[in-house]
């Protein structure tokens, strides 16, 4: 018997794989989405969402993509998986994503194709939106300049394309590579980790989506989870998933603080400050430690 059956769950509640069904509409995520949509709808050109590791940037990006109705938006998301790309290539990919089936081989022609396509989209009463996830990988000035060039495609009164960067804090450095581009950022929003209340809501939300009919986590356990995770959603998921598994193995009725302690020990989280992350707000060093923790867990 798996722990899903043991706890009467239909879905794995704390998988770290992105799954729109588990989207948790926290206040700050709502605020972020609101601002980003505002930037797009008012043709601001460039918006940026910054967040630490595991704070839900990708989730938000996908949420936003889902929100962009195809009837009103010609939207697409590019996920950067490595930093070695060149400007021409990214331009070509954007062109393809916006519906240009056969982008030309040379940059100028592609830009012309893009411009014509953007006019076409605008004539349809739609907006062109490009979301770039893991945008901190855009590490060259040339790439930044290419984006600036794209943002210059406009007709009187409005931009023809809107671009939203989702990335780690290093994205600020990338933007600085091209100061004029940095100046074009119309909206910027930082995603922070959850406080204890939100952590509690988050855990309950996921359990509900997964089909839980009753409380599975002891309130003290949730507090402990928050303490060890620092309110980072991805880390919360990892701890909760392990806790459910351990409780199932030990035939416990619900997840108790003792189990959380044990899991945190196994995950190497005990050395972390026991509490106070969420309440006191995060300093840079603290965030770094959290990221370290997440990275170690991912390595395992």
């Amino acid at each position: 018997m798996s722990y899903l059956e043991y706890f009467g769950l239909e879905l794995e509640p704390f998988s770290n794989a992105p799954d729109a069904r588990f989207y948790f509409d926290s206040d700050q995520h709502s605020q972020a989405l609101l601002r980003l949509m505002y930037a797009v709808n008012s043709d601001k050109g460039l918006a940026v969402l910054v967040g630490g590791v595991g704070n839900g940037k990708t989730t938000l990006a996908r949420r936003m993509l889902d929100t962009l109705d195809e009837e009103k938006y010609e939207s697409s998301m590019l996920v950067m998986v490595h930093s070695g790309i060149d400007p021409e290539w990214i331009l070509t990919r954007i062109a393809m994503q916006l519906g240009i089936k056969e982008p030309a081989a040379d940059r100028l022609t592609v830009l012309k194709q893009l411009y014509e396509r953007l006019i076409e989209i605008d004539n349809q009463g739609r907006k062109a939106v490009i979301l770039i996830d893991e945008a901190q990988m855009l590490q060259s000035r040339e790439l930044m300049e290419e984006f600036r060039g794209l943002l210059n495609l406009e007709i009187p009164g409005k931009k023809l394309i809107n671009i939203v960067f989702f990335g780690l804090t290093e994205i600020e450095d990338c933007l600085k590579l091209d100061e004029p581009l940095a100046q074009r950022v119309a909206v910027k929003y930082h995603l922070n980790s959850f406080n204890v209340d939100i952590t509690k809501s988050y855990i309950n939300h996921r359990l509900t989506v997964a089909g839980a009919k009753q409380a599975i986590f002891d309130p003290q356990a949730i507090q402990a989870i928050h303490n060890y995770s620092g309110g980072v959603p991805r880390l919360i998921n990892t701890i909760c998933d392990n806790c459910l598994f351990e409780t199932h193995i030990q035939k416990g009725p619900i997840v108790m603080p003792k189990i959380v302690e044990s899991v945190a020990g196994d995950l190497g989280l005990l050395q972390q400050p026991g509490s106070g992350f969420a309440e006191t707000g995060y300093q840079e060093d603290d965030l770094g430690e959290i990221e370290d923790m997440l990275d170690r867990l991912e390595l395992k």
Binding site: L65, S76, V79, H82, Q97
Partner: peptide
Amino acid sequence: AGKNAKDRVSYI
């Protein structure tokens, strides 16, 4: 990303 998004995501 759901049906709506599956053709709209590209990896670089």
